[in-house]
Simulated scan of single mutants.
Amino acid sequence: MSPRAGLTTDRLVRAGADLADEVGFDQVTVSALAKQFDVKVASLYSHLKGSQDLRTRIALLSLEEMADRVSTALAGRAGKDALAAFANVYRDFAREHPGRYTAARLPLDTETAAASAGPRHARMTRAILRGYDLTEPDQTHAVRLLGSVFHGYISLESAGGFSHSSPDTEETWVWIVDRVDTLLRTWPTTP
């Protein structure tokens, strides 16, 4: 790649993430990225190993961006306030960056996952749950519950699953967060 082009791995990954938001994560390839920069595909191989490498790097970037937002949103919050802030970050991120949100769900190999912001997400989720006095194994069950409920709703909403019915999706979202808070506050103790 010519130094004149000013392309770096970071710049390519960020452009790939932007492209994912525009056209969908499944449409992001090295070829599509080369076309966007008006360069030959082969010239990108000095920065990327291929389309899977590009997608993995976009996933890692997306996880990091979301973790930064969650961390900021959780500062000084506890209980239901922290739960709502946490949930809203994911929903807002999915609305603002649909391709990145999809990328963050990319399955990663064990080593890559361990080095990603994924464990940071898990620590922040567990920090929220400590405010509900959950112990193991209930805390792990609750981490999975939160991921399932919030990601499930966000996925259905982004696919237009609730667009033709009432009540308003915002009303349902608030209702869900309230009910999850109630569930966590009244979680039965495991003997």
Rank of each mutant, 00 (worst) to 15 (best):
H97E: 07
S163K: 09
M124I: 04
R91Y: 09
S155M: 12
W187I: 04
G6L: 13
E157N: 11
D10V: 13
R185L: 13
E136M: 12
R57Q: 15
D181M: 11
G16L: 08
F86Y: 15
L61H: 05
A103P: 00
D133Q: 14
D53I: 00
H47R: 09
P137N: 11
G16H: 07
G152W: 12
V89F: 04
S43Y: 02
M1D: 03
A17K: 00
R144S: 10
D109A: 09
V177L: 04
K40I: 02
Q27G: 09
T186V: 05
A20M: 09
A159E: 14
V177T: 05
D81F: 04
S71G: 14
A34P: 10
T110C: 01
A127M: 12
V89P: 01
T125Y: 00
H141A: 14
G131K: 09
L48R: 01
E111Y: 01
L145E: 00
S51N: 03
A127D: 14
T102K: 13
L48K: 02
L184S: 06
R123A: 13
L108C: 06
G131M: 10
Y153A: 06
T56Y: 02
A32T: 13
H97V: 01
G76P: 02
A142Y: 00
E96M: 12
G24D: 08
V23E: 11
T189R: 14
T56M: 10
G160M: 09
L145R: 00
R126C: 06
P119F: 10
S51K: 07
P188N: 03
Y101W: 15
Y132P: 01
I58N: 03
R105D: 06
G131S: 10
R105C: 04
H97Q: 13
H141T: 13
S116R: 03
Y45L: 12
P188W: 03
V30Q: 02
N88R: 13
D26A: 14
P119Y: 10
F25G: 00
A75M: 05
P3D: 14
V70Q: 08
G131P: 06
N88G: 08
S116H: 03
A15R: 12
V177H: 02
D38A: 14
R130Y: 07
G79D: 11
R57C: 05
E111A: 15
A82I: 07
G152A: 08
Y90P: 05
R69V: 07
L60S: 05
R91D: 07
R126I: 01
S148K: 10
V180E: 01
S165L: 12
F37I: 01
L63N: 09
H164Q: 11
E96A: 15
Y101Q: 04
H47K: 10
A94C: 12
F25N: 00
P191R: 06
L12R: 06
S166M: 06
D109I: 05
L108P: 08
T186I: 03
R11A: 15
L48I: 02
